[in-house]
Computed example of a mutant assay.
Amino acid sequence: MGDIRQWLADLVGERKVGRGTKAVIDAIIADPEDSAYASAQELARRAGVNAATVVRAAQLLGFSGWPDLSTEVRNRYLSSLTVERVYDLYSADDADPVGQTIGQDLRLLETMLTSLDTAAVRAASEVIRTSRRTVVFTTGTYAAPAQQLAHVGQMLGYDVMLQSGASTAMLNSARLLGEGDCFFTYSIWKTTSLVRELADVAKQRGATVVAIADRRSAVAELADVFIAVPSEGRSFVPSITCAVSVSQSILRLLADADRAATRARLRELDDLWERLGIVDDE
């Protein structure tokens, strides 16, 4: 895996690493698929070191430990595969797909509950709260949590817009962002090069970039605020459950920032729904 080899080389940089750390890195490069799903003890056996060396190697590379690094390796490995290959990877299992899918989402939420950087979530909420406007840029599956963030953000009285359509429209929106604005994006699995380039355009113009991502992607590296979420599904598409949960947390923080104002805005919204007959209360 050339991408993983280069990524690990970039993390090491000019530093000299010990034999144990080098053995761990070489084991990951030699078989990123098995390494991505291995425990620290299993990887240690393959590398010919002990589990403590695996943990130290992960920390030297900038991660809290092996679980943090293995998640990054796994997401990078999966993002390098074709959609067909990912489907084949999971369809070989004859277990109940419904139970598998729901069970996997539960495991992802449990993982996120202990690994989520809640300070980053609060920082993302504060960026939206204090920005003149926020534009959420996304493509594909992740338009779902993006739509929720934009829609409910507007319900709360914030200027939050979604851009998930034509590339020219997305470019125009990014060009209009500047100091005091927020460029918000979801960078999961296979991120389009357009979103990455637009994030760079917006940042150069002074906008604050917030990214929800499943790995330290190019967009995540650009971000002023980065929120890592697990996304490995049990099918040929990633799970959006954790991204939705984080989006809902951001919205709750926005609502609670000024509860009196939130109550007033929601009361006004209820009145407008009733007056215009928008909501069917059967």
Rank of each mutant, 00 (worst) to 15 (best):
G165P: 03
S79A: 13
L171R: 10
T134A: 04
R122S: 07
V86K: 13
Q248R: 11
P238M: 00
G178I: 12
L149Q: 07
L198F: 00
S79E: 06
R175D: 04
A30K: 02
V83S: 04
V246R: 05
A123V: 02
L149A: 04
K22F: 07
D26N: 09
Q204M: 14
S39I: 07
D3L: 11
S164C: 10
E179M: 12
V135N: 01
D34E: 04
L116E: 13
A36S: 11
L69C: 07
A40C: 08
L11N: 05
A95R: 14
L78D: 03
E282P: 07
Q248A: 14
R76N: 06
A95V: 05
V210L: 02
S125V: 11
T130I: 03
D270Q: 11
D270L: 08
D214Q: 06
T185R: 00
D94E: 15
S239L: 00
A169N: 08
Q148A: 15
A243R: 05
S115P: 11
A261S: 09
P230E: 07
A36W: 01
V279C: 06
A9E: 10
I227P: 01
G157C: 00
Y142Q: 08
F184K: 02
V121W: 05
V246M: 04
A27V: 03
D3F: 06
W273P: 00
L276H: 06
F183I: 04
V246N: 02
L78I: 10
M155H: 13
A174L: 02
R196N: 14
G103R: 01
A166Y: 05
S70L: 08
I212S: 02
K203S: 07
D34I: 00
L254S: 01
E274H: 09
S247G: 13
M161C: 12
E179R: 15
R45E: 15
I188N: 02
V12R: 11
Y158N: 04
D10G: 12
R5S: 11
G65Q: 04
S235D: 05
A228F: 10
D200M: 07
A146F: 09
D88H: 13
T139Y: 15
A213E: 05
S187V: 07
A124E: 02
D31Q: 03
I212K: 00
E72L: 07
V246E: 08
I188C: 04
L149P: 02
R259A: 13
V136Y: 04
R85F: 08
G62V: 12
R196A: 09
G277N: 02
A27R: 01
S164H: 10
A30S: 12
G20A: 06
G277I: 03
T114K: 14
R122C: 10
V244N: 09
A150C: 06
A261G: 05
T53P: 00
A150F: 01
D96S: 06
G140S: 08
P97K: 15
L253K: 07
R216E: 12
V49G: 07
Q100V: 05
Q148V: 14
E282T: 15
A92M: 10
S115M: 12
E126K: 08
A218T: 03
A119W: 08
V152G: 08
V49A: 10
T71S: 14
A211D: 03
I278A: 06
V17R: 14
Y158H: 13
V55M: 14
K190E: 14
D224K: 11
L266W: 01
L276G: 09
R19K: 15
I102S: 09
G180Q: 07
